[in-house]
Amino acid sequence: MNKLDIFKNGITKENPILVQQVGMCATLAVTTSLLNGIGMGIAVIAVLTGSNIVISLLRKFIPDEVRIPAFVIIIAAFTTIVDLLMHAYTFALYQALGVFIPLIVVNCLILARAEAFAFKNGVVDSIIDGLGMGAGYLVAMILLSSVREFLGNGTLFGINVLPASYEPMMIAIQPPGAFIILGLLIGLVNYLSRRKKA
């Protein structure tokens, strides 16, 4: 695959949330506001790209038998780095994302990319894969959280977008809304991709 294809792959064909459907927990939980969704997306990009780089650099050095524990240690380290940096520099976002920041370490996406790509490819390609998959994750997060914040609060980024007379659909912000809206979003994506094939 050429470099552009690697990048695009993560956004469309193998979109982590809409197609692969990994790392659902964070997706459902933090998308109550557009700002939080974007914050989480960027955090995931950081951990994913960072661990992809290191694992790719060390791929000749890490023995096959212990590669999974090695991946886990490296991914956990990057997760902690992001956690500490957010705790210090983006405190409000840190408080909003809560337990889901350390939970980035169990986001199947990152381990999957390490195993499927970074361990077998050069650093440059691994960076692009990380950025591409991360971008795909971010795009899906933006879609989901903007719908939820818009319907459930009438705002985007905390700014009122709908007239004051709008009665917010509280359910969109609550847990059921997350499940249902994501389900419908995936249904829509399925529909669009099937139409494209036909």
Partner: peptide, 22 residues
């Protein structure tokens, strides 16, 4: 021993980086 050693090395370096950042 070699496998354990490599894992330990990775873990130790990670811990070191984190200690510094912390």
């Amino acid at each position: 021993v070699r496998l354990g050693g490599i894992l330990f090395l990775i873990a130790a370096i990670s811990a070191g980086v984190l200690a510094f950042l912390n």
